[in-house]
Design a protein around this nucleic acid. Structure first.
Lengths: 239, 239
DNA sequence: GTTTGTGAAGTCATTCACAGCT
DNA sequence: AGCTGTGAATGACTTCACAAAC
């Protein structure tokens, strides 16, 4: 599959690669590769080996090569991968060639932080709508965007081309908001509320629960201290 | 090379002792079970079948039973699981019987939101220290906690029993902060900075990168639009 | 020499399906 | 009847190891 460069992307009729159904595990790693490539690029590096890039992203180099090969990206044997070309290829696969339009629903502390998080716009996610149900919050101005009544959400989704919804409401409101988003045609949802959302097939939901992450750490912490008596460290090759 | 950057989501780098040797995939699901059990408990339910609990957490019921069986939790055939008992069991396995003491380093917008996020203390994670390097932020009061100079971090870890560090600094500072935490004896880190941390074996790192989540959604969005019309939506996977 | 690309092997995770308990 | 617990089957992911390409 040495599809050569060519590529800048977009949706050609010809399938440049199998990109259609990439294993979820691969997709999860692509943003990480992309970030590392950006860092390399800023350092003026223009070619990178799978070994080096793998180290920068914390994965095994064989896996990295296999991932890239599945994307249809290719390197040069004996040399490595072209940093800029690879970054462009990954960005294309991720659909980052056009900016996405994001609405945040729920502007409590977390929602406000998300609204102001520079990492979103830096990576091409334009926050274009803020919505809340609390009259005490509606009307507030956050870095130039005014918080609107969630009743206006559906219309805004249609009129303003919103395609990603970020739910940062309390758990009790999350399903309702998800329904609003889905009915308005949004098919990608990032859910920060601590609950499972029911959505129709075809709608992608990703969930981030900050307390869950801490609980997982708690588990490790707990079992590290339990292990003190046994001292049996299972040696497993640590990358 | 001490490169241990623990992967994004799943992967246990920690060396747990024999008794607590649960697969990482199971540990990831436990907090979700616990949350669903809490909801059931509040509704006055005191017995639940694997089928029902599985539905509430979005997993397959056989997997749920297998998970619980690995914990040593058991239900009653023909009846189901005792809600309170199961919740207590899972909490014990996760080490949630004693509260954890958390420091947040980096109090930009995200760090401030985390500091005020009620979900942490609700689930037994006490935020006891806030640290930043910016003189403009040091000294600020956030809900009764004063932001201290990061130079005081190591002493605070020791004197105040901090066992979890949350890094919410810019990427460039994150490795330095991680080193400080590790040197001070912290073995659990939650990293919000967009970079891979190198830590010695025995230190557990979990990473949450908000932009990565959006990029993954972008992928799905992108491929929905150029996929065949009879799209076969594969199951989305939650970390 | 270096480094990619990939079959094959290995490891881990999930689902199935049913025996066995209540 | 209903439901758990678990071996077996399936599927997914990762790593190994090496031939082919530069």
């Amino acid at each position: 599959m040495t599809t050569t460069g060519e590529g800048t992307d977009q949706r050609a009729a010809a399938p440049p690669a199998a990109a259609g159904d990439l294993p979820a595990a691969v997709v999860r790693r692509l943003p990480e590769y992309l970030r590392a490539l950006g860092t390399l690029s800023e350092s003026g590096v223009d070619t990178v080996s799978s070994e080096t890039l793998a180290a920068a992203t914390g994965v095994n180099s064989a896996m990295l090569r296999k991932d890239l090969s599945q994307l249809g990206a290719s390197g040069m044997r004996g040399v490595g991968y072209n940093v800029a070309g690879l970054a462009a290829h990954i960005a294309a696969v991720l659909g980052l060639t056009k900016d996405s339009r994001v609405a945040i629903i729920g502007l409590g502390h977390l929602g406000q932080a998300l609204a102001r998080y520079p990492g979103f716009s830096e990576r091409g996610f334009d926050i274009v709508g803020l919505f809340d149900a609390d009259p005490g919050i509606i009307g507030r101005d956050l870095d130039g965007l005014r918080v609107r009544d969630v009743a206006l959400l559906a219309a805004a989704v249609r009129d303003e081309g919103i395609n990603i919804g970020v739910i940062a409401t309390p758990g009790a409101a999350a399903q309702h908001v998800a329904d609003l988003l889905v009915d308005a045609g949004v098919t990608s949802i990032l859910n920060f509320a601590p609950c499972v959302l029911a959505v129709p097939p075809g709608v992608a939901v990703r969930k981030v629960d900050l307390a869950v992450e801490l609980q997982i750490l708690s588990f490790h912490e707990h079992h590290k201290s339990l292990g003190r008596s046994e001292t049996q460290i299972n040696k497993r090759r640590e990358r």
